[in-house]
Amino acid sequence: MSIMQHNGGSVIAMVGKDCVAIASDLRLGVQSLSITSDFEKIFPVTDRLFVGLPGLATDVTTLREQFRYRVNMYTIKEEREIEPQTFAQLVSSTLYERRFGPYFIEPVMAGMQKTPAGGYAPFIAATDLIGCLNFAKDFVVAGTASEKLFGVAEGLWEPDLEAEDLFETISQTLLNALDRDAFSGWGAVVHVITKDKVITRKLKGRMD
């Protein structure tokens, strides 16, 4: 079995109307043996930006620490918060630095991006394990249930969903994809991000 499937786990992000959502499962396993059901793989970067790191669990922790360090350095030097677009480039170059000995992680980002007009626009992006960026307009998925997530999301997602409807859409997409994946599941967490607040909810789902 591939190293990408070693610990299991999946992440999805979706765009809505003046909001974005990012969600993941909570399982940490070693092949088919489940170790814990509270292994978070989505982390806050700023008040309006989250990054999800599905893949090899050791690299989840390592990259999370790496990103926290680099974002802190950016914030201190620039005396301002990092924008999602900029952070996506930071993620990309951090991964490409290890082009021939990669971190086994496929990051997913979701946040609200400042516009020149002074407002905020939804932003999502994902990369592969060596940092090839994908700026999708609808949704991005990654992890062991990615195929299933693609199928359900393609069927359920529609443009311009309000925050509460987006929450329902991403939750249903995630839960139903997880139930068909042996390596993901054991609980789930959803973050819905708007320009002035973040709503985080733990989902009750199947625990098998």
Binding site: E147, K148, G151, V152, E154, G155, L156, N176, D179, R180
Partner: peptide, 10 residues
């Protein structure tokens, strides 16, 4: 893999 979970749901 794409269709079955969608059907489970719908």
């Amino acid at each position: 893999a794409l269709v079955q979970p969608f059907l489970d749901n719908q």
